[in-house]
């Protein structure tokens, strides 16, 4: 198993083999997480700090649980309530934390590229838990694991990513990952939320959801942020639900065994019909949450291994 990276900042830098390595290890952690004794000692003695400059419940909880199950000492820092408010710059905050010798930094930040910047200034492994509208690699990886387990493969699938592509880091990371694994990706949504340059990424763009879902294997819904709903990007919530909300009628166009995904939290009745979200034969939304913990355990495990190898010898990670 090779995973020659110091940080996990995005999917862009990963190869097919890297992605497969994470997913294979994550599969093992799914088994562990389903057993009565959920502990491993992969991160024993290591310190993990979760720095969230943006509100998060699920991602932060998932990372926290992943670290704890691997035996790390986990600390959560709500950065909005801390020295950032007092005018400290991102780099000063990073240097302060760096002096406490963490081994893993999990960072979410509202600005694209902020996590890359921070990673340049610290000497521990950094995991991007979402930066602006740039990347959210662990979300794409957990989605990939969910698809691979549900469909038995992660290639040659027709996958529709639907909704607010423009502002979504989840969409970008998924688009890159699914492309790298040789799938056919479609983007579905109103033109105000799918800027034209996305057609240059080697995917098909649909503004009609019925057409966009024709014969797909996977329907990936995105959350529509409340602040985009009031006239700025779309005329109204109800018009959006009518044209782009996933309901039984639109889902009929997909393959009969197509799965439905959503990164959460959901707006029922805006981008997705409640009945579909709860339909256990179609929806894998709960599995996504489960896979999230396993994928984060796998990613942190691999990065920690590299860091340990680097500490004992002149490691070969980049």
């Amino acid at each position: 198993m090779s995973f020659a990276h110091r940080h996990l900042l995005g999917i862009e830098a990963l190869s097919q083999a890297d992605i497969t390595a994470i997913l294979d290890l994550a599969d093992q952690y799914v088994t562990l997480n389903r057993s009565p004794s959920k502990h491993s000692d992969a991160l024993t003695g290591l310190t993990q700090i979760n720095m969230f400059f943006e509100n998060s419940t699920r991602t932060q909880a998932s990372f926290e649980l992943a670290g704890k199950r691997l035996g790390a000492d986990v600390m959560n820092m709500a950065m909005q309530a801390s020295s950032v408010k007092k005018g400290e710059t991102l780099i000063d905050t990073a240097l302060t934390l760096n002096a406490m010798h963490p081994d893993l930094l999990v960072v979410r930040h509202p600005n694209s590229g902020a996590v890359d910047l921070l990673a340049q200034k610290v000497n521990c492994a950094v995991l991007n838990a979402g930066d602006g509208r740039h990347e959210h690699p662990t979300q794409a990886l957990l989605d990939a694991l969910t698809i691979r387990r549900a469909k038995g493969r992660l290639h040659r699938l027709n996958i529709a990513i639907c909704g607010d592509i423009a502002h979504s880091r989840v969409a970008r990371s998924n688009l890159i990952l699914l492309g790298k694994m040789e799938n056919r990706v479609r983007l579905v949504g109103p033109p105000t939320l799918i800027p034209s340059q996305f057609s240059e990424f080697g995917c098909e763009v649909y503004h009609d959801m019925h057409e966009g879902l024709e014969d797909v294997d996977v329907v990936m819904m995105l959350r529509l942020q409340k602040e985009r709903m009031d006239g700025g990007f779309i005329p109204s919530e109800r018009e959006y639900y009518h044209r782009y909300g996933l309901d039984a009628d639109k889902l009929k166009r997909a393959k009969p065994d197509a799965i439905v995904m959503h990164p959460g939290p959901m707006n029922r009745g805006v981008e997705i019909d409640g009945d579909i979200a709860d339909d256990v034969t179609r929806s894998v939304i709960q599995e996504q949450v489960e896979m999230g913990v396993a994928v984060r355990m796998a990613a942190m495990h691999l990065l920690a291994e590299n860091a340990k190898a680097a500490a004992t010898s002149k490691g070969t990670y980049v």
């Binding site: 862009e12 694209s112 590229g113 930066d131 602006g132 509208r133 740039h134 990347e135 880091r169 970008r172 800027p195 340059q197 996305f198 240059e200 990424f201």
Partner: peptide
Amino acid sequence: TSGKFAALRGLP
């Protein structure tokens, strides 16, 4: 400037 590069980097 809008285009593929800005879209990839997630920059406004």
